[in-house]
């Protein structure tokens, strides 16, 4: 069994997410390429049992109980998605640390000051043959200041918000690109706004705006663990081209004018194909944009060439999403900047 296991950190696993050869997936899910095949990482059995580490808990303002309560609220938020079957169960406290291959999915603090831009990180142990997750640990970097206050605290990062993002990874979701950023003078990027908890860059300290799942997050977790009325929803598939040639890594947003929601995905193969699932039946507007609001390695492995030289483009017709079906392939031609 051991030789079938593999471990990867979230930042690196996200890079593996592009490995989908089959575009008939919604959202950005973690996947690993095994030979010519790609398998999606997900839990084969739910509820997912998790432990809270009692080690390294000397973080100012965050007691062990408050930590457990905050991550519990984050787990409950994912579990409450009515169209997804994923479930989680608090299994108890452990003296073990996150990032230990002990068969227990553990959440806790670790002091990693050298990771000066990493608030938290999720890593996995999974079965190489099936993609089934075996263990997933989350560490929160205690080199930063943290808050578990209901209304948040100025200058401290909201533990519940960051936990919500990391639990998305723990469940098998990659990063979303539904967000806008601008470069900081000191390096890195500042988030102006985002519409997905799974956007790879956190809001500034003090914000509690990322405690609520958005349509894109809900579509993603529901696509991984479909349940309830998810089967009643539909999808849009198609391809993105420039001068007739397929584009890899283009970000495609489906906007629902009925409710203002946005769900997005990327072109994920050499044919420039994309698929966006979990969409409400009805007309949608498609918008294509280059992936220029976060580091590319937040989404794709660094060896892949992602083309950013094209303008934001709308499809000049609305696309009808059928109930329990796909729109049929649409092609959007984009132009160089």
């Amino acid at each position: 069994m051991t030789d079938r296991r593999a471990r990867a950190a979230a930042a690196m696993i996200a890079a593996l997410a592009l490995a989908h050869a089959d575009p008939a997936h919604a959202y950005l899910k973690f996947g690993v390429r095994l030979g010519n095949q790609t398998v999606t990482l997900k839990w084969a059995q739910v509820p997912v049992r998790y432990f809270v580490s009692t080690s390294n808990q000397n973080v100012p303002g965050v007691s062990l109980d408050a930590f457990q309560a905050a991550v519990g609220r984050a787990f409950a938020t994912w579990q409450a998605v009515p169209t997804a079957s994923v479930a989680y169960q608090f299994a108890g406290f452990t003296a073990g640390l996150p990032d230990e291959d002990d068969g227990m999915s553990t959440l806790g603090f670790r002091n990693r000051p050298e990771l000066d831009r990493v608030l938290a990180q999720t890593d996995f142990l999974f079965d190489r043959a099936t993609g089934a997750l075996i263990e997933s640990d989350i560490f929160f970097n205690s080199a930063f200041s943290w808050s578990v206050a209901e209304a948040g605290e100025s200058g401290r990062f909201d533990l519940q918000s960051v936990a919500l993002h990391e639990i998305g990874h723990l469940s098998g979701l990659g990063h979303s690109a539904l967000g806008e950023t601008e470069p900081r003078e000191t390096g890195g990027r500042r988030v102006i706004a985002s519409e997905a908890v799974m956007f790879p860059i956190a809001f500034a300290a003090g914000s509690i705006a990322a405690r609520t799942l958005k349509a894109d997050d809900i579509a993603g977790i529901s696509d991984l663990y479909p349940d309830g009325d998810f089967a009643q929803l539909g999808s849009i598939s198609g391809r993105i081209t420039r001068n007739g040639q397929p584009l890899f890594g283009a970000h495609v947003v489906a906007f629902d004018p009925a409710n203002g929601s946005m769900v997005a995905n990327f072109t994920l193969n050499e044919q420039g194909q994309f698929s966006i699932a979990g969409l409400s039946p009805g007309p949608h507007v498609l918008r294509v944009e280059p992936l220029d609001d976060a580091d590319l390695d937040s989404f794709f492995e660094s060896t892949r060439s992602v083309d950013l030289d094209f303008r934001v483009t709308y499809l000049d017709r609305a696309v009808i999403v059928p109930r329990r079906g796909d729109s049929g392939s649409v092609t959007i031609e984009v132009a160089r900047k």
């Binding site: 102006i192 706004a193 985002s194 519409e195 705006a209 203002g260």
Partner: peptide, 11 residues
Amino acid sequence: SRDANETTGSG
């Protein structure tokens, strides 16, 4: 009309 809104850090 519907705006395609994203959420800012202040909510």
